[in-house]
C-alpha cells in the first residue's frame, strides 16, 4: 500500500514539474514578444521575425509539455503525426507566400 502511494505521489510530482516547466516557458515566450513590441526598439521586420520564431518555439513547448509528445518510442506515432502535420502546413504556408509575393511583383504597373 505504502509503495503504491509513494510511486503514485512520485508520478504526480513528475507530472506537476512538467506542467510547471511548460507554463513557465509559455509565459516567458509570451511576455518577451509583448515586451519587445512595447519597447519598440527593433525594426518592423526584425520584431516580426523574432515574434514568429518565439511563437513556433512556444508551439513546440505546448506539444512537449502539455500534450506529452516527446522523442520517446511510446510516443513515436504521435510524433510522426505532428511532424507530418507540420510538414504539410509548412508547404501550404511557404508555397502561398512564394506565390503571392511573386504575383505581386508581376502585377505591378510598369513604370
Amino acid at each position: 500500500m505504502k509503495t503504491e502511494n509513494a510511486s503514485s505521489r512520485e508520478a504526480y510530482l513528475h507530472d506537476l514539474r512538467g506542467y510547471q516547466t511548460g507554463l513557465l516557458l509559455a509565459v516567458l515566450l509570451t511576455v518577451v514578444p509583448f515586451g519587445l513590441v512595447a519597447w519598440g526598439g527593433l525594426s518592423y521586420v526584425t520584431a516580426m521575425s523574432v515574434v514568429a520564431v518565439l511563437a513556433i518555439v512556444q508551439i513546440v513547448v505546448h506539444v512537449r509539455y502539455f500534450l506529452h509528445v516527446d522523442l520517446s518510442p511510446e510516443r513515436r506515432d504521435d510524433l510522426h503525426l505532428i511532424l507530418f502535420s507540420a510538414l504539410l502546413l509548412a508547404i501550404m504556408v511557404a508555397g502561398s507566400i512564394w506565390i503571392l509575393v511573386n504575383l505581386q511583383t508581376r502585377m505591378m504597373m510598369p513604370m
Binding site: L88, M92, I99, N102, L103, R106
Partner: peptide, 14 residues
Amino acid sequence: FTVWLHHFFTMGQD
C-alpha cells in the same frame, strides 16, 4: 499538397 498552382498557371506568376 504541392501542386495546387497548376489550376492557375495563367494568372501571371513567373
